[in-house]
C-alpha cells in the first residue's frame, strides 16, 4: 500500500519548551490513523504542523511522496484539509453557509461560478443537511450540525488527507455517534486518508486502522488497532487503556463488576 503522509523527524519548540520532539510517523493511503494522547501531549500541534498552520523548526513532511515546503502551493493546501474540535468557533460567524461553501469552491476552482449553488447543495446533502441551510448563519445551527457544515467545507475542495482534531469531543454522545458514522461513510466513498485525533479511546477504537500514542511531545507507540487495544507495546499505552472507565454491561458474562471502584 502506498504512503499518503510521511512525517520525518519533525520538531517544534516554543522558546525552551519542546512541543514536538523528533516525530516520525507514516500514514498509509485510504487508512485512518488514530492519534491519542492526554492534554499537552502535542497531538494538536502535530495536526497543525501537518495542516501547514505551524512551520516546524526541524524535519520534513511528504504528502504522496512529494515534499511539503514551508510555503505550500495552492494545490498542496487543497490536498490537506482539517476539521476542528470546537463547533462554536469552526465557522466564521458573519458568513452564511452559502458564502462559507462558495469561498472554498471558488478559491480552489473546484467548479465554475455558475455551478457553485448546485455543488453547495450536493455537499450539504452529503452531510445530511437540507439545501435551505445555505441561507442561514452558523449560530442558527446546533453543534452537531455545525460540525457537519465544517466537514462539508473541508471536503468541498476534494482533499486527499483529512485531519480531524477531536471533531466530536464537544458533542453529546448520540450526536457524536452520528458524526462518526458520517465521517466513516465519507471516508470510504471518497477514498480519504484520515488522521483522527482524540483523547477518547472509545472513539479511537471506533474509527482507526492504526493507533499512534503521544506523550509530552514524543511518539511512544504506533500499532495496528487490534494489537494496540489488546496488547499495547508501551507501558504508558497500557496505563491509558486501563484508566478508561468501563460499562458494567460490557464486561464479559459472569463476572459483573461491583458498581463502585
Amino acid at each position: 500500500m502506498d504512503l499518503s503522509l510521511q512525517v520525518n523527524n519533525v520538531t517544534v519548540r516554543y522558546g525552551g519548551f519542546t512541543a514536538l520532539d523528533n516525530i516520525r510517523l507514516e500514514v498509509q493511503q485510504h487508512t485512518t490513523l488514530g492519534l491519542v494522547g492526554e492534554s499537552g501531549s502535542g497531538k494538536s500541534t502535530l495536526a497543525r504542523v501537518i495542516a501547514g498552520l505551524i512551520i516546524p523548526d526541524q524535519g520534513q513532511l511528504l504528502l504522496d511522496a512529494e515534499p511539503l515546503t514551508g510555503k505550500r502551493t495552492r494545490e498542496q493546501r487543497k490536498k490537506i484539509q482539517m476539521i476542528f474540535q470546537n463547533p462554536d468557533a469552526s465557522l466564521n460567524p458573519k458568513h452564511s453557509i452559502r458564502q462559507i461553501l462558495a469561498e472554498a469552491l471558488l478559491f480552489h476552482k473546484i467548479v465554475g461560478r455558475a455551478e457553485v449553488e448546485k455543488r453547495s447543495r450536493q455537499l450539504l446533502e452529503r452531510v445530511s443537511l437540507e439545501g435551505k441551510a445555505l441561507d442561514k448563519y452558523p449560530h442558527e445551527f446546533s453543534g452537531g450540525q455545525r460540525q457537519r457544515i465544517a466537514i462539508a467545507r473541508a471536503l468541498s475542495v476534494e482533499p486527499s488527507l483529512l485531519i480531524a482534531d477531536e471533531p466530536t469531543s464537544a458533542l453529546d454522545v448520540s450526536v457524536q455517534l452520528s458524526v462518526l458514522e458520517l465521517l466513516g461513510t465519507l471516508k470510504s466513498e471518497l477514498n480519504l486518508t484520515m488522521l483522527f485525533i482524540s483523547h477518547d479511546l472509545g472513539v479511537i477504537h471506533a474509527v482507526s486502522d492504526k493507533v499512534a500514542v503521544m506523550r509530552q511531545g514524543k511518539l511512544v507507540e504506533v500499532s495496528p488497532k487490534d494489537r494496540f487495544f489488546s496488547r499495547p507495546e508501551a507501558a504508558y499505552s497500557r496505563e491509558l487503556l486501563s484508566a478508561v472507565p468501563q460499562m458494567p454491561t460490557m464486561k464479559t458474562s459472569g463476572g459483573l463488576h461491583e458498581p463502585r471502584t
Binding site: F229, S230, R231, P248
Partner: peptide
C-alpha cells in the same frame, strides 16, 4: 445502576447506552 444499564426500559436510555463507544478489554499483561 445495573438494572438501568442492563435492562433499560426507556428508549432514550437504550439510545444513550448504544452510543457508548466501548474500549475492548486488555489482554492480561
Amino acid at each position: 445502576t445495573l438494572s438501568v444499564l442492563q435492562e433499560p426500559q426507556n428508549p432514550y436510555t437504550q439510545m444513550l447506552i448504544n452510543s457508548v463507544l466501548p474500549v475492548p478489554e486488555l489482554a492480561p499483561e
